[in-house]
Computed example of a mutant assay.
Amino acid sequence: MAQRTALITGITGQDAAYLAKFLLEKDYRVVGTYRRTASSNLWRLEEMGVLDRVELIPMDLLEMTNVVRVIQKVRPSEVYNLGAQSFVGVSFEQAVYTSQVNAIGVCYLLEAVRALDGAARFYQASTSEMFGKVREEPQNEDTPFYPRSPYAVAKVYAHYMTVNYREAHGLHASCGILFNHESPLRGREFVTRKITASLAKIAHGQQDVLELGNLEAKRDWGYAADYVRGMWMMLQHPHGDDYVLATGESHSVREFVDKAAECAGFRLAWEGEAVSARGIDRASGKTIVRVNPDFFRPAEVESLRGDASKARRVLGWQPEVTFEQLVEIMMRADMDRAARGRLLHLRF
Rank of each mutant, 00 (worst) to 15 (best):
V113L: 09
G13E: 08
E262M: 04
Y160P: 04
K201I: 02
Y123F: 14
R337L: 15
S303I: 12
A274H: 07
A339H: 06
I104W: 07
R340N: 09
K310N: 07
S250W: 00
E302A: 13
L116C: 05
M161T: 13
G187C: 14
S91M: 07
E141Q: 14
D226H: 11
L326K: 11
A283H: 03
L199E: 14
N66T: 14
L344Y: 05
E182F: 10
Y243C: 04
V301W: 04
C107Q: 09
I11F: 07
G176C: 03
S149W: 04
L45C: 02
V321C: 14
S126R: 08
A299E: 13
S91V: 12
A115R: 13
A17F: 03
R332W: 06
M330T: 06
G285I: 06
M231G: 00
D208H: 08
R267T: 09
K73H: 15
A217D: 09
P138D: 11
T287F: 05
G272S: 00
V327M: 03
T65G: 10
A333E: 10
F323W: 11
T143D: 10
V289Y: 02
A158S: 11
V275L: 07
F295A: 02
T196D: 00
V101I: 15
H172Q: 05
V253L: 06
R278H: 04
P76D: 08
D142I: 02
R312P: 01
T65M: 15
I329E: 08
L82Q: 03
R114C: 07
A264Y: 02
L7F: 04
G170W: 03
L51D: 09
M335C: 03
R332F: 03
V244H: 07
S284Q: 01
E137Q: 13
V321R: 07
G222C: 13
R148V: 14
E182Y: 12
L326D: 06
M233K: 10
F131A: 11
D60G: 10
H251Y: 06
V314E: 15
G240H: 00
E211V: 09
E271K: 12
P147K: 01
R267Q: 13
L19Y: 06
I8S: 06
Y146S: 11
V113P: 05
A168Y: 07
I329F: 11
C175P: 06
L304R: 10
A224H: 07
A2R: 12
L268G: 03
E111T: 13
T5A: 01
S198I: 11
A112L: 10
D294M: 10
F87W: 10
T37V: 15
F22G: 02
A277Y: 00
I11S: 00
S99H: 04
F179R: 12
G176S: 04
E111R: 13
E46G: 09
F323P: 01
R332K: 15
E302P: 08
E273V: 08
H204I: 04
E189A: 15
T9R: 12
A311M: 14
R29N: 14
V134G: 05
G176N: 05
A154Y: 00
E167C: 06
